[in-house]
Simulated scan of single mutants.
Amino acid sequence: MTGHHPRQAVVTGSDSGIGAATALLLAAEGYDVGLTCHEDTAGVRATAAAVEERGQRAVVEVFDASRPDAGATVDRLAEQLGGLGVLVNVAGTGHTDRVVDLPYERWRQVLATDLDGPFLCAQRAARIMIAGGHPGRIVNVTSVHEHLPRLGTAAYCSAKAGLGMLTKVLALELAEHGITVNAVAPGEIATPMTGIAEEDAYREERPGNPVGHVGHVNEVASVIGFLVSPRASYVTGASYVVDGGLSLMAAHGHDSATGWRSLS
């Protein structure tokens, strides 16, 4: 399939954090953007205003990724935008419960939000792109915990690992239609979800991380921006880890947080 994908994008969870940063980057690159929020309507309105300040259209929908009709939001946004070339699945949730204490209802809610929702949105986006007869880009924001387990996050890790494998299957199935599908797997990023203010990203020290600090949302958004660009046309089914080198540290787990750099 030849040609370029349309300059219309949907970014879920774009009221703050990685989603908002991604929406603004895409707007700066000439995309009209469909935005969603779950409850933070003030946040998504601020993102919409910032998109429009960059000379692009913004349309907004309230969105619950855990609902069986979550995919319909993509249909509505694409209709308002007049097409769809890019979907970025950012919306998600987490938890802190050991498996023995994790209520089934919480397990299901996290999986529904972090796996079912992206599946339904990607399915609808792919249908729109195929029907339009043009290439497209789908990016699923997973987590470094797509690849690495963490105590107290069984549902979150399971959902993100599942979304990583869904990304690969979608890449296989949609390649013939000119649609690439990739994952971006952030480490600890300064967002409302992690409780770290965006402006503190480079001041929040992490001695056990090779880079030594928390990541900034723009560092994740820039990777997403690459993946939806023509420069990444031959990239599909990949997972780009954006974690400051954290996932390289397994062999140093026995070292102290401050002493791992020493060879003595």
Rank of each mutant, 00 (worst) to 15 (best):
L170Q: 06
L84H: 00
T167S: 01
A251C: 07
D255M: 12
S247D: 03
D200V: 00
A183M: 01
G85D: 07
A91T: 08
M193G: 04
A126F: 03
G30L: 10
A9C: 03
V60L: 07
E176Q: 13
P230F: 11
G43W: 14
L81G: 02
R137H: 04
A154N: 02
E29M: 05
T41C: 09
Y234A: 12
G85P: 05
G259K: 05
G132Q: 01
R7A: 14
G3C: 11
S66K: 00
L246Q: 14
V141T: 13
A238N: 15
L35W: 13
Y31W: 12
A175V: 11
E204R: 15
A155L: 11
G212T: 08
G132S: 07
A197T: 02
Q109R: 15
L163W: 03
L248P: 01
A48G: 12
E199W: 02
T191V: 02
T142Y: 04
G208K: 07
R137A: 06
T191P: 02
N140W: 00
V214Y: 04
T12N: 06
G244Y: 08
S14P: 12
E29L: 09
G208D: 15
S229K: 10
V228F: 08
D15E: 13
P149A: 12
E188Y: 04
S262N: 11
Y202E: 14
T258D: 12
H134D: 05
R67V: 09
F226M: 10
E29S: 11
R7M: 10
L25E: 08
L25G: 08
D15C: 12
R206M: 09
A46S: 15
H134Q: 15
W260E: 03
T93W: 00
G55A: 06
N182C: 06
G152E: 03
E61P: 10
E105G: 00
R76M: 03
V100I: 08
W260S: 06
E52T: 15
D243S: 03
Y104V: 14
G195R: 05
S256Y: 09
V181Q: 07
R206H: 01
A238I: 06
T96I: 11
